[in-house]
């Protein structure tokens, strides 16, 4: 029993990571109807920016806000420069452009920082809380807390600020939003900026656990997709719940289903994506149907 609970705790820990990247995916999807295949790579790039500051001796809690700010501006610039020209183009075109961005960012990080693995310091202390045979690592708690805080901040932004209201208006009816005087283009850029910031948080949390290298987020991305699909592509709450479920499901499947084992765990997100899309395409919390005709 203790072992089972222990596995769930571990699953929640990785689930929180998936949730953070899924949140970033959902933010962009809500505003633009785009699934950003480069989201994981942008997160990885942000982690490298943080690493550069840390490597130069900047304390973590100063490097973090600087990295987040750079990521925010970077995300906005990418929307303005890369995505803007294909706004309103067929889905196929936009997906291909974000795949191009994926390849570019991945290779650019390798070019700038080399493809060698780098050590990334863990902002959370070592050690763990122990209770009844179950131990919960401080870093697991830390990751869960960070995701909780990000979620809370996003809630405050969307529910209690004017810009948040404007962003929701754009997400639900861009044409009408334009008619009440909202600069829709800037809101879309803002959405990308926010997503890049949330993604940066994700990348900085992943880096100490997986080692920092350009392909770091490749594995996480598919779990984040599964989380977002399960929760509903347009639901931030769904992304977090979906992430936690995917994390727990993956860990339990790896631990208790012999056929799967630790090596085939990556089949779990594939199975989740397929089942959700075929049975309940809008996901658990999503409103929009899959096909945006």
């Amino acid at each position: 029993m203790a072992d089972f609970i222990q596995q769930i705790v571990v699953g929640l820990g990785s689930g929180a990571i998936y949730a953070s990247l899924a949140l970033a995916l959902v933010l962009i999807y809500r505003f633009t109807g785009i699934v950003n295949f480069a989201q994981g790579e942008l997160a990885m790039f942000s982690a490298y920016i943080a690493w550069t500051f840390l490597d130069a001796g900047v304390p973590f809690w100063i490097a973090l806000p600087i990295t987040l700010a750079i990521s925010f501006v970077g995300g906005m610039l990418i929307e303005r420069i890369v995505i803007r020209p294909v706004e309103g183009a067929p889905e196929l075109t936009i997906v291909i452009v974000t795949v191009g961005l994926f390849i570019f960012v991945n290779a650019a990080a390798g070019w700038i920082w080399s493809f060698l693995i780098k050590d990334f310091p863990n902002p959370f202390p070592d050690g763990a809380l122990r209770a009844g045979g179950v131990s919960v690592g401080y870093s697991t708690l830390g990751v869960l807390a960070v995701v909780g805080v990000v979620m809370g901040l996003l809630y405050l932004l969307f529910r209690h600020t004017k810009i948040g209201l404007g962003m929701r208006a754009v997400a639900t009816n861009p044409e009408s939003a334009r008619l009440v005087g909202i600069r829709v283009g800037w809101v879309l850029a803002l959405g990308w900026g926010l997503a890049a910031t949330v993604g940066a948080v994700s990348g900085i949390m992943v880096a100490p656990l997986l080692f920092l290298e350009p392909n770091m987020m490749g594995g996480v991305l598919i779990y984040a997709f599964a989380a977002a699909t399960l929760g509903g592509m347009d639901s931030p709450v769904g992304a977090v719940v979906g992430g936690l479920i995917v994390g727990v499901a993956e860990t339990l499947a790896g631990a208790y289903v012999d056929v799967i084992g630790s090596d085939l765990k990556v089949g779990v997100p594939l199975a989740i994506i397929l089942v959700v899309l075929l049975l309940r395409p809008q996901g658990l919390f999503g409103k929009a149907a899959v096909e945006r005709a």
Partner: peptide
């Protein structure tokens, strides 16, 4: 040029081609 160069070229070209 660099180990990352093929990817940089691929990525850029894909985006430019789509434009």
């Amino acid at each position: 040029i660099n180990q990352g160069a093929p990817g940089v070229i691929f990525g850029l070209l894909i985006i430019v081609v789509m434009y």
